[in-house]
Design a protein around this nucleic acid. Structure first.
Lengths: 236, 236
DNA sequence: TTGGTTCAACGAACAGTGTTCTCCCATGGA
DNA sequence: TCCATGGGAGAACACTGTTCGTTGAACCAA
Protein backbone atom coordinates (compact mmCIF):
# COMPACT_ATOMS: atom_id res chain seq x y z
CA UNK A 1 0.00 0.00 0.00
CA UNK A 2 2.68 2.49 1.02
CA UNK A 3 4.85 1.26 -1.83
CA UNK A 4 2.37 2.68 -4.32
CA UNK A 5 2.51 6.15 -5.81
CA UNK A 6 3.14 8.86 -3.19
CA UNK A 7 -0.08 9.93 -1.52
CA UNK A 8 -0.86 13.29 -0.05
CA UNK A 9 -0.03 13.50 3.63
CA UNK A 10 3.69 13.33 3.81
CA UNK A 11 5.43 14.56 0.65
CA UNK A 12 4.24 18.14 0.77
CA UNK A 13 5.78 18.28 4.24
CA UNK A 14 9.17 17.81 2.64
CA UNK A 15 8.49 19.72 -0.51
CA UNK A 16 7.67 22.81 1.47
CA UNK A 17 3.92 22.92 0.93
CA UNK A 18 4.48 24.00 -2.66
CA UNK A 19 1.44 23.66 -4.87
CA UNK A 20 3.68 22.19 -7.55
CA UNK A 21 2.20 18.72 -7.04
CA UNK A 22 -1.38 19.22 -5.84
CA UNK A 23 -2.24 15.50 -5.87
CA UNK A 24 -1.97 15.49 -9.66
CA UNK A 25 -5.59 16.49 -10.35
CA UNK A 26 -8.55 17.47 -8.20
CA UNK A 27 -10.74 14.37 -8.76
CA UNK A 28 -13.81 15.34 -10.70
CA UNK A 29 -16.89 13.41 -11.74
CA UNK A 30 -15.58 13.29 -15.30
CA UNK A 31 -12.23 11.84 -14.24
CA UNK A 32 -13.98 9.16 -12.21
CA UNK A 33 -16.18 8.08 -15.11
CA UNK A 34 -13.20 7.99 -17.48
CA UNK A 35 -11.21 5.91 -15.02
CA UNK A 36 -14.11 3.49 -14.66
CA UNK A 37 -14.39 3.03 -18.41
CA UNK A 38 -10.65 2.49 -18.59
CA UNK A 39 -10.97 -0.32 -16.05
CA UNK A 40 -13.85 -1.92 -17.96
CA UNK A 41 -11.76 -1.82 -21.12
CA UNK A 42 -8.75 -3.37 -19.46
CA UNK A 43 -10.29 -5.84 -17.01
CA UNK A 44 -14.02 -6.13 -17.67
CA UNK A 45 -17.14 -5.31 -15.71
CA UNK A 46 -16.50 -7.83 -12.95
CA UNK A 47 -13.32 -5.97 -12.00
CA UNK A 48 -15.15 -2.66 -11.75
CA UNK A 49 -15.52 -1.99 -8.03
CA UNK A 50 -15.54 1.36 -6.29
CA UNK A 51 -12.26 0.49 -4.60
CA UNK A 52 -10.73 -0.37 -7.95
CA UNK A 53 -11.80 2.97 -9.39
CA UNK A 54 -10.40 4.74 -6.38
CA UNK A 55 -7.12 2.89 -6.75
CA UNK A 56 -6.98 3.89 -10.44
CA UNK A 57 -7.14 7.52 -9.32
CA UNK A 58 -4.66 7.12 -6.49
CA UNK A 59 -7.26 7.38 -3.74
CA UNK A 60 -9.87 5.32 -1.92
CA UNK A 61 -13.46 4.37 -2.64
CA UNK A 62 -14.99 6.79 -0.16
CA UNK A 63 -13.64 9.80 -2.01
CA UNK A 64 -15.73 8.98 -5.04
CA UNK A 65 -19.02 9.45 -3.25
CA UNK A 66 -18.63 13.21 -3.23
CA UNK A 67 -19.05 13.09 -7.00
CA UNK A 68 -21.16 10.12 -8.07
CA UNK A 69 -23.79 9.17 -5.53
CA UNK A 70 -23.79 5.44 -6.09
CA UNK A 71 -22.27 2.74 -8.20
CA UNK A 72 -25.46 2.47 -10.21
CA UNK A 73 -25.18 6.13 -11.13
CA UNK A 74 -21.52 5.65 -12.03
CA UNK A 75 -22.42 2.80 -14.37
CA UNK A 76 -25.03 5.02 -15.98
CA UNK A 77 -22.39 7.65 -16.62
CA UNK A 78 -19.87 5.13 -17.96
CA UNK A 79 -22.50 3.86 -20.35
CA UNK A 80 -23.26 7.40 -21.43
CA UNK A 81 -19.58 8.02 -22.09
CA UNK A 82 -19.53 4.99 -24.39
CA UNK A 83 -22.66 6.20 -26.13
CA UNK A 84 -20.98 9.55 -26.69
CA UNK A 85 -18.68 7.90 -29.23
CA UNK A 86 -21.63 7.21 -31.51
CA UNK A 87 -22.11 9.79 -34.22
CA UNK A 88 -25.65 10.46 -35.33
CA UNK A 89 -26.95 11.62 -38.68
CA UNK A 90 -30.21 13.43 -39.41
CA UNK A 91 -33.12 11.23 -40.47
CA UNK A 92 -33.56 10.69 -44.20
CA UNK A 93 -37.04 9.43 -45.18
CA UNK A 94 -35.66 7.89 -48.40
CA UNK A 95 -33.38 5.41 -46.65
CA UNK A 96 -34.59 5.29 -43.09
CA UNK A 97 -34.47 1.50 -42.83
CA UNK A 98 -30.81 1.16 -43.70
CA UNK A 99 -30.14 4.23 -41.60
CA UNK A 100 -31.61 2.78 -38.43
CA UNK A 101 -29.87 -0.53 -39.03
CA UNK A 102 -26.59 1.30 -39.35
CA UNK A 103 -27.26 3.14 -36.11
CA UNK A 104 -28.03 -0.05 -34.22
CA UNK A 105 -24.94 -1.76 -35.59
CA UNK A 106 -22.91 1.19 -34.37
CA UNK A 107 -24.51 0.93 -30.93
CA UNK A 108 -23.69 -2.75 -30.82
CA UNK A 109 -20.11 -2.10 -31.81
CA UNK A 110 -19.77 0.68 -29.27
CA UNK A 111 -20.88 -1.70 -26.52
CA UNK A 112 -18.78 -4.62 -27.73
CA UNK A 113 -15.68 -2.43 -28.08
CA UNK A 114 -15.76 -1.99 -24.29
CA UNK A 115 -15.57 -5.64 -23.27
CA UNK A 116 -18.76 -6.64 -21.44
CA UNK A 117 -20.02 -3.12 -20.84
CA UNK A 118 -23.34 -4.28 -22.29
CA UNK A 119 -23.93 -5.89 -18.90
CA UNK A 120 -24.44 -2.40 -17.54
CA UNK A 121 -26.84 -1.63 -20.38
CA UNK A 122 -29.20 -4.54 -19.73
CA UNK A 123 -29.46 -3.90 -16.03
CA UNK A 124 -29.74 -0.13 -16.48
CA UNK A 125 -33.02 1.65 -16.16
CA UNK A 126 -34.77 3.49 -18.93
CA UNK A 127 -32.01 5.59 -20.49
CA UNK A 128 -32.11 9.08 -19.05
CA UNK A 129 -28.56 10.24 -19.70
CA UNK A 130 -27.89 12.84 -22.42
CA UNK A 131 -26.19 10.74 -25.08
CA UNK A 132 -28.49 7.77 -24.59
CA UNK A 133 -31.38 10.13 -25.14
CA UNK A 134 -29.69 11.58 -28.21
CA UNK A 135 -29.68 8.10 -29.68
CA UNK A 136 -33.31 7.51 -28.77
CA UNK A 137 -34.15 10.88 -30.28
CA UNK A 138 -32.38 9.99 -33.52
CA UNK A 139 -34.10 6.60 -33.68
CA UNK A 140 -37.50 8.16 -33.12
CA UNK A 141 -36.82 10.66 -35.89
CA UNK A 142 -35.89 7.87 -38.29
CA UNK A 143 -38.95 5.79 -37.43
CA UNK A 144 -41.21 8.77 -37.88
CA UNK A 145 -39.44 9.58 -41.12
CA UNK A 146 -40.43 6.08 -42.19
CA UNK A 147 -44.05 6.99 -41.74
CA UNK A 148 -44.70 5.05 -38.55
CA UNK A 149 -47.40 6.37 -36.27
CA UNK A 150 -46.46 7.67 -32.85
CA UNK A 151 -47.26 4.58 -30.83
CA UNK A 152 -45.50 2.24 -33.23
CA UNK A 153 -42.42 4.45 -33.24
CA UNK A 154 -42.48 4.61 -29.45
CA UNK A 155 -42.77 0.86 -29.03
CA UNK A 156 -40.28 0.38 -31.84
CA UNK A 157 -37.46 2.37 -30.30
CA UNK A 158 -37.93 0.41 -27.11
CA UNK A 159 -37.94 -2.89 -28.97
CA UNK A 160 -34.88 -2.11 -31.04
CA UNK A 161 -32.93 -0.85 -28.06
CA UNK A 162 -33.84 -3.89 -26.04
CA UNK A 163 -32.76 -6.18 -28.84
CA UNK A 164 -29.46 -4.45 -29.40
CA UNK A 165 -28.38 -4.31 -25.77
CA UNK A 166 -29.56 -7.85 -25.01
CA UNK A 167 -27.75 -9.40 -27.96
CA UNK A 168 -24.63 -7.36 -27.27
CA UNK A 169 -24.66 -8.62 -23.70
CA UNK A 170 -25.10 -12.18 -24.90
CA UNK A 171 -22.28 -11.80 -27.41
CA UNK A 172 -19.95 -10.28 -24.83
CA UNK A 173 -20.45 -13.06 -22.31
CA UNK A 174 -20.11 -15.77 -24.94
CA UNK A 175 -17.17 -14.19 -26.67
CA UNK A 176 -15.44 -13.42 -23.40
CA UNK A 177 -13.03 -16.25 -23.93
CA UNK A 178 -12.48 -18.02 -27.17
CA UNK A 179 -15.76 -18.17 -29.06
CA UNK A 180 -14.82 -21.36 -30.86
CA UNK A 181 -14.13 -23.06 -27.57
CA UNK A 182 -17.51 -22.01 -26.18
CA UNK A 183 -19.37 -23.21 -29.27
CA UNK A 184 -17.56 -26.52 -29.19
CA UNK A 185 -18.48 -27.02 -25.54
CA UNK A 186 -22.18 -26.48 -26.24
CA UNK A 187 -22.01 -28.72 -29.25
CA UNK A 188 -20.33 -31.40 -27.18
CA UNK A 189 -23.06 -31.11 -24.55
CA UNK A 190 -25.79 -31.46 -27.18
CA UNK A 191 -24.15 -34.70 -28.25
CA UNK A 192 -24.66 -36.17 -24.77
CA UNK A 193 -28.35 -35.41 -24.20
CA UNK A 194 -30.99 -38.06 -24.94
CA UNK A 195 -32.06 -37.83 -28.56
CA UNK A 196 -35.45 -39.43 -27.88
CA UNK A 197 -36.44 -36.62 -25.53
CA UNK A 198 -34.84 -33.83 -27.55
CA UNK A 199 -35.08 -34.90 -31.19
CA UNK A 200 -35.18 -31.34 -32.53
CA UNK A 201 -32.28 -30.01 -30.48
CA UNK A 202 -30.02 -32.97 -31.18
CA UNK A 203 -30.76 -33.04 -34.90
CA UNK A 204 -30.41 -29.26 -35.25
CA UNK A 205 -27.33 -28.90 -33.08
CA UNK A 206 -25.30 -27.47 -35.94
CA UNK A 207 -27.87 -24.78 -36.76
CA UNK A 208 -28.40 -23.94 -33.08
CA UNK A 209 -24.72 -23.41 -32.39
CA UNK A 210 -23.93 -21.65 -35.65
CA UNK A 211 -21.95 -18.56 -34.84
CA UNK A 212 -20.48 -16.73 -37.80
CA UNK A 213 -19.78 -13.06 -37.31
CA UNK A 214 -22.84 -10.91 -36.78
CA UNK A 215 -25.16 -13.09 -38.87
CA UNK A 216 -27.30 -13.85 -35.84
CA UNK A 217 -27.64 -10.17 -34.97
CA UNK A 218 -28.43 -9.21 -38.55
CA UNK A 219 -31.10 -11.90 -38.70
CA UNK A 220 -33.08 -10.39 -35.84
CA UNK A 221 -32.39 -6.86 -37.00
CA UNK A 222 -33.89 -7.59 -40.43
CA UNK A 223 -37.02 -9.09 -38.90
CA UNK A 224 -37.54 -6.23 -36.48
CA UNK A 225 -37.00 -3.36 -38.92
CA UNK A 226 -39.04 -5.06 -41.65
CA UNK A 227 -41.80 -5.76 -39.12
CA UNK A 228 -41.87 -2.13 -38.03
CA UNK A 229 -41.86 -0.92 -41.63
CA UNK A 230 -44.86 -3.09 -42.37
CA UNK A 231 -46.82 -1.38 -39.62
CA UNK A 232 -47.07 1.69 -41.84
CA UNK A 233 -49.92 1.97 -44.38
CA UNK A 234 -47.45 2.79 -47.16
CA UNK A 235 -45.37 -0.32 -46.58
CA UNK A 236 -48.29 -2.73 -46.53
CA UNK B 1 -30.74 -15.35 15.96
CA UNK B 2 -31.34 -17.76 18.87
CA UNK B 3 -34.96 -16.71 18.94
CA UNK B 4 -35.49 -18.33 15.54
CA UNK B 5 -36.59 -21.89 14.96
CA UNK B 6 -34.62 -24.39 17.12
CA UNK B 7 -31.41 -25.46 15.47
CA UNK B 8 -29.77 -28.83 15.80
CA UNK B 9 -27.18 -28.88 18.54
CA UNK B 10 -29.20 -28.52 21.69
CA UNK B 11 -32.66 -30.06 21.39
CA UNK B 12 -31.56 -33.65 20.80
CA UNK B 13 -29.58 -33.35 24.00
CA UNK B 14 -32.87 -33.09 25.87
CA UNK B 15 -34.85 -35.43 23.71
CA UNK B 16 -32.40 -38.23 24.41
CA UNK B 17 -30.76 -38.48 21.03
CA UNK B 18 -33.93 -40.04 19.67
CA UNK B 19 -34.19 -40.05 15.92
CA UNK B 20 -37.72 -38.78 16.29
CA UNK B 21 -36.61 -35.36 15.07
CA UNK B 22 -33.65 -35.99 12.76
CA UNK B 23 -33.30 -32.36 11.81
CA UNK B 24 -36.69 -32.53 10.04
CA UNK B 25 -35.38 -33.69 6.67
CA UNK B 26 -31.99 -34.69 5.30
CA UNK B 27 -31.40 -31.60 3.12
CA UNK B 28 -31.45 -32.61 -0.51
CA UNK B 29 -30.73 -30.70 -3.68
CA UNK B 30 -34.46 -30.59 -4.41
CA UNK B 31 -35.31 -29.10 -1.01
CA UNK B 32 -32.66 -26.43 -1.48
CA UNK B 33 -33.99 -25.38 -4.87
CA UNK B 34 -37.56 -25.28 -3.55
CA UNK B 35 -36.50 -23.16 -0.59
CA UNK B 36 -34.69 -20.77 -2.91
CA UNK B 37 -37.76 -20.33 -5.11
CA UNK B 38 -39.86 -19.76 -1.97
CA UNK B 39 -37.53 -16.94 -0.97
CA UNK B 40 -37.67 -15.37 -4.43
CA UNK B 41 -41.47 -15.48 -4.28
CA UNK B 42 -41.60 -13.90 -0.85
CA UNK B 43 -38.72 -11.42 -0.93
CA UNK B 44 -37.36 -11.15 -4.47
CA UNK B 45 -34.05 -11.96 -6.12
CA UNK B 46 -32.03 -9.42 -4.16
CA UNK B 47 -32.86 -11.28 -0.95
CA UNK B 48 -31.68 -14.60 -2.35
CA UNK B 49 -28.31 -15.26 -0.74
CA UNK B 50 -26.79 -18.59 0.15
CA UNK B 51 -27.04 -17.69 3.83
CA UNK B 52 -30.70 -16.84 3.44
CA UNK B 53 -31.40 -20.20 1.80
CA UNK B 54 -29.53 -21.96 4.57
CA UNK B 55 -31.56 -20.09 7.15
CA UNK B 56 -34.78 -21.08 5.39
CA UNK B 57 -33.76 -24.71 5.86
CA UNK B 58 -32.60 -24.27 9.44
CA UNK B 59 -28.92 -24.51 8.64
CA UNK B 60 -26.00 -22.46 7.33
CA UNK B 61 -24.75 -21.54 3.89
CA UNK B 62 -21.84 -23.95 3.89
CA UNK B 63 -24.10 -26.98 4.12
CA UNK B 64 -25.61 -26.20 0.74
CA UNK B 65 -22.38 -26.68 -1.13
CA UNK B 66 -22.57 -30.45 -0.74
CA UNK B 67 -25.57 -30.35 -3.06
CA UNK B 68 -25.39 -27.42 -5.44
CA UNK B 69 -21.85 -26.48 -6.41
CA UNK B 70 -22.34 -22.74 -6.73
CA UNK B 71 -24.94 -20.02 -6.55
CA UNK B 72 -25.00 -19.79 -10.31
CA UNK B 73 -25.92 -23.44 -10.54
CA UNK B 74 -28.59 -22.95 -7.87
CA UNK B 75 -30.13 -20.11 -9.87
CA UNK B 76 -30.14 -22.34 -12.92
CA UNK B 77 -32.05 -24.97 -10.97
CA UNK B 78 -34.51 -22.45 -9.54
CA UNK B 79 -35.20 -21.22 -13.03
CA UNK B 80 -35.72 -24.76 -14.20
CA UNK B 81 -38.19 -25.38 -11.39
CA UNK B 82 -40.20 -22.36 -12.54
CA UNK B 83 -40.06 -23.59 -16.13
CA UNK B 84 -41.39 -26.95 -14.94
CA UNK B 85 -44.77 -25.30 -14.30
CA UNK B 86 -45.18 -24.65 -18.01
CA UNK B 87 -47.23 -27.26 -19.77
CA UNK B 88 -46.36 -27.96 -23.37
CA UNK B 89 -48.54 -29.15 -26.20
CA UNK B 90 -47.46 -30.99 -29.35
CA UNK B 91 -46.89 -28.82 -32.40
CA UNK B 92 -49.85 -28.33 -34.71
CA UNK B 93 -48.90 -27.08 -38.20
CA UNK B 94 -52.39 -25.58 -38.68
CA UNK B 95 -52.08 -23.06 -35.87
CA UNK B 96 -48.41 -22.91 -35.08
CA UNK B 97 -48.28 -19.12 -34.89
CA UNK B 98 -50.91 -18.77 -32.21
CA UNK B 99 -49.45 -21.81 -30.50
CA UNK B 100 -45.98 -20.34 -30.15
CA UNK B 101 -47.41 -17.02 -29.01
CA UNK B 102 -49.37 -18.83 -26.34
CA UNK B 103 -46.24 -20.64 -25.23
CA UNK B 104 -44.24 -17.44 -24.95
CA UNK B 105 -47.04 -15.74 -23.03
CA UNK B 106 -47.01 -18.67 -20.64
CA UNK B 107 -43.25 -18.38 -20.22
CA UNK B 108 -43.58 -14.70 -19.51
CA UNK B 109 -46.28 -15.32 -16.93
CA UNK B 110 -44.25 -18.10 -15.32
CA UNK B 111 -41.36 -15.69 -14.87
CA UNK B 112 -43.50 -12.78 -13.71
CA UNK B 113 -45.37 -14.96 -11.21
CA UNK B 114 -42.10 -15.34 -9.32
CA UNK B 115 -41.34 -11.69 -8.69
CA UNK B 116 -38.11 -10.70 -10.48
CA UNK B 117 -36.94 -14.22 -11.21
CA UNK B 118 -36.47 -13.09 -14.81
CA UNK B 119 -33.27 -11.45 -13.58
CA UNK B 120 -31.82 -14.92 -13.27
CA UNK B 121 -33.01 -15.72 -16.78
CA UNK B 122 -31.25 -12.81 -18.48
CA UNK B 123 -27.93 -13.41 -16.82
CA UNK B 124 -28.15 -17.20 -17.24
CA UNK B 125 -26.17 -18.96 -19.90
CA UNK B 126 -27.65 -20.87 -22.78
CA UNK B 127 -30.41 -22.97 -21.20
CA UNK B 128 -29.07 -26.46 -20.52
CA UNK B 129 -31.47 -27.62 -17.79
CA UNK B 130 -34.13 -30.24 -18.62
CA UNK B 131 -37.30 -28.14 -18.54
CA UNK B 132 -35.70 -25.19 -20.29
CA UNK B 133 -34.65 -27.54 -23.02
CA UNK B 134 -38.16 -29.04 -23.14
CA UNK B 135 -39.45 -25.56 -23.94
CA UNK B 136 -36.78 -24.98 -26.57
CA UNK B 137 -37.62 -28.37 -28.03
CA UNK B 138 -41.31 -27.49 -28.21
CA UNK B 139 -40.60 -24.12 -29.80
CA UNK B 140 -38.34 -25.70 -32.40
CA UNK B 141 -41.05 -28.22 -33.21
CA UNK B 142 -43.60 -25.44 -33.69
CA UNK B 143 -41.31 -23.38 -35.88
CA UNK B 144 -40.50 -26.37 -38.03
CA UNK B 145 -44.20 -27.21 -38.17
CA UNK B 146 -44.62 -23.72 -39.59
CA UNK B 147 -42.35 -24.64 -42.46
CA UNK B 148 -39.29 -22.68 -41.39
CA UNK B 149 -35.95 -24.00 -42.51
CA UNK B 150 -33.49 -25.26 -39.92
CA UNK B 151 -31.37 -22.15 -39.60
CA UNK B 152 -34.35 -19.81 -39.37
CA UNK B 153 -35.93 -21.99 -36.70
CA UNK B 154 -32.66 -22.13 -34.78
CA UNK B 155 -32.17 -18.37 -34.88
CA UNK B 156 -35.87 -17.92 -34.20
CA UNK B 157 -36.00 -19.89 -30.96
CA UNK B 158 -33.04 -17.88 -29.74
CA UNK B 159 -34.64 -14.60 -30.76
CA UNK B 160 -38.00 -15.38 -29.18
CA UNK B 161 -36.44 -16.61 -25.96
CA UNK B 162 -34.26 -13.55 -25.74
CA UNK B 163 -37.23 -11.27 -26.29
CA UNK B 164 -39.40 -13.00 -23.72
CA UNK B 165 -36.85 -13.09 -20.92
CA UNK B 166 -35.61 -9.57 -21.58
CA UNK B 167 -39.09 -8.03 -21.57
CA UNK B 168 -40.09 -10.06 -18.51
CA UNK B 169 -37.04 -8.75 -16.72
CA UNK B 170 -37.86 -5.22 -17.73
CA UNK B 171 -41.46 -5.61 -16.61
CA UNK B 172 -40.45 -7.09 -13.27
CA UNK B 173 -38.05 -4.28 -12.42
CA UNK B 174 -40.48 -1.62 -13.55
CA UNK B 175 -43.51 -3.17 -11.90
CA UNK B 176 -41.59 -3.89 -8.73
CA UNK B 177 -43.32 -1.06 -7.00
CA UNK B 178 -46.38 0.72 -8.23
CA UNK B 179 -46.28 0.83 -12.01
CA UNK B 180 -48.32 4.03 -12.16
CA UNK B 181 -45.87 5.74 -9.88
CA UNK B 182 -42.93 4.67 -12.04
CA UNK B 183 -44.62 5.83 -15.23
CA UNK B 184 -45.48 9.16 -13.68
CA UNK B 185 -41.90 9.67 -12.58
CA UNK B 186 -40.57 9.09 -16.11
CA UNK B 187 -43.27 11.31 -17.55
CA UNK B 188 -42.35 14.00 -15.07
CA UNK B 189 -38.70 13.74 -16.05
CA UNK B 190 -39.56 14.06 -19.74
CA UNK B 191 -41.33 17.29 -18.91
CA UNK B 192 -38.10 18.79 -17.58
CA UNK B 193 -35.72 18.00 -20.44
CA UNK B 194 -34.98 20.64 -23.10
CA UNK B 195 -37.53 20.38 -25.90
CA UNK B 196 -35.18 21.95 -28.46
CA UNK B 197 -32.65 19.14 -28.06
CA UNK B 198 -35.21 16.35 -27.70
CA UNK B 199 -38.22 17.39 -29.80
CA UNK B 200 -39.30 13.83 -30.55
CA UNK B 201 -39.04 12.54 -26.99
CA UNK B 202 -40.81 15.50 -25.45
CA UNK B 203 -43.60 15.53 -28.01
CA UNK B 204 -44.08 11.77 -27.85
CA UNK B 205 -43.79 11.43 -24.07
CA UNK B 206 -47.28 9.98 -23.80
CA UNK B 207 -46.65 7.27 -26.39
CA UNK B 208 -43.23 6.46 -24.95
CA UNK B 209 -44.52 5.96 -21.44
CA UNK B 210 -47.72 4.17 -22.43
CA UNK B 211 -48.03 1.10 -20.28
CA UNK B 212 -51.33 -0.75 -20.51
CA UNK B 213 -51.22 -4.41 -19.63
CA UNK B 214 -49.18 -6.57 -21.94
CA UNK B 215 -49.77 -4.44 -25.02
CA UNK B 216 -46.09 -3.66 -25.29
CA UNK B 217 -45.14 -7.33 -25.09
CA UNK B 218 -47.79 -8.34 -27.62
CA UNK B 219 -46.55 -5.67 -30.01
CA UNK B 220 -43.09 -7.15 -30.20
CA UNK B 221 -44.42 -10.69 -30.18
CA UNK B 222 -46.57 -10.01 -33.24
CA UNK B 223 -43.68 -8.51 -35.15
CA UNK B 224 -41.31 -11.34 -34.32
CA UNK B 225 -43.66 -14.22 -35.07
CA UNK B 226 -44.95 -12.58 -38.24
CA UNK B 227 -41.38 -11.88 -39.29
CA UNK B 228 -40.37 -15.48 -38.76
CA UNK B 229 -43.44 -16.74 -40.60
CA UNK B 230 -42.55 -14.58 -43.60
CA UNK B 231 -39.16 -16.26 -43.84
CA UNK B 232 -40.88 -19.37 -45.17
CA UNK B 233 -41.57 -19.66 -48.93
CA UNK B 234 -45.23 -20.45 -48.25
CA UNK B 235 -45.76 -17.29 -46.23
CA UNK B 236 -44.21 -14.93 -48.75
C1' DT C 1 -2.64 38.90 8.73
C1' DT C 2 -5.78 36.74 11.19
C1' DG C 3 -9.94 33.86 12.24
C1' DG C 4 -13.60 31.07 10.94
C1' DT C 5 -16.21 28.46 7.79
C1' DT C 6 -16.80 25.04 4.35
C1' DC C 7 -16.23 20.89 2.08
C1' DA C 8 -13.54 17.46 -0.60
C1' DA C 9 -10.62 13.74 0.81
C1' DC C 10 -9.90 9.74 3.37
C1' DG C 11 -9.13 5.82 6.75
C1' DA C 12 -11.87 2.90 9.23
C1' DA C 13 -15.73 0.43 9.94
C1' DC C 14 -20.33 -1.81 8.95
C1' DA C 15 -23.12 -5.19 7.11
C1' DG C 16 -23.24 -7.88 3.83
C1' DT C 17 -21.69 -11.35 -0.22
C1' DG C 18 -19.95 -16.26 -2.28
C1' DT C 19 -16.93 -19.71 -1.17
C1' DT C 20 -13.55 -22.81 1.23
C1' DC C 21 -11.34 -25.02 5.18
C1' DT C 22 -11.60 -27.93 8.73
C1' DC C 23 -13.38 -30.19 12.04
C1' DC C 24 -17.46 -33.18 14.12
C1' DC C 25 -20.31 -36.86 14.32
C1' DA C 26 -24.01 -39.85 12.77
C1' DT C 27 -24.67 -43.40 9.70
C1' DG C 28 -23.74 -47.76 6.90
C1' DG C 29 -21.01 -51.60 5.77
C1' DA C 30 -17.68 -55.14 7.24
C1' DT D 1 -18.15 -53.88 17.38
C1' DC D 2 -15.23 -51.11 14.72
C1' DC D 3 -14.03 -48.13 11.24
C1' DA D 4 -14.52 -45.37 7.14
C1' DT D 5 -17.34 -42.40 4.48
C1' DG D 6 -19.40 -38.18 3.88
C1' DG D 7 -22.93 -34.72 4.95
C1' DG D 8 -23.56 -30.85 8.41
C1' DA D 9 -21.83 -26.68 10.09
C1' DG D 10 -18.91 -22.97 12.42
C1' DA D 11 -15.27 -20.01 11.36
C1' DA D 12 -12.71 -17.63 8.29
C1' DC D 13 -11.21 -15.42 3.78
C1' DA D 14 -11.40 -12.07 0.47
C1' DC D 15 -14.32 -9.42 -1.31
C1' DT D 16 -18.46 -5.96 -2.09
C1' DG D 17 -21.13 -1.01 -1.69
C1' DT D 18 -21.77 2.42 1.47
C1' DT D 19 -21.51 5.49 5.69
C1' DC D 20 -19.23 7.83 9.61
C1' DG D 21 -16.19 10.94 11.74
C1' DT D 22 -12.12 13.27 11.21
C1' DT D 23 -8.60 15.92 8.83
C1' DG D 24 -6.65 19.39 6.25
C1' DA D 25 -6.53 22.75 2.87
C1' DA D 26 -8.62 26.52 0.49
C1' DC D 27 -11.48 30.57 0.66
C1' DC D 28 -13.58 34.86 2.50
C1' DA D 29 -14.66 38.50 5.86
C1' DA D 30 -12.68 41.37 9.36
Amino acid sequence: MTSAAPRSGWPEHWRGKAKAAPRRQPLSRERIVEAALRIVDAEGMDALSMRRVGQELGTGAASLYAHVGSKEELLEQVLDLAYAEIELEPADPARWEEQIKRLLRTCREALLSHRDLAKAAVVANVPVTPHAMDIAEAMLAMLKAGGLDEQTAAYGVDLLGLYTTATAFEASTRGGGNTEEFTDRIRGYFATIPAERYPMITSMAAALTRNVGDERFEFGLDILVAGLARQTPAGA
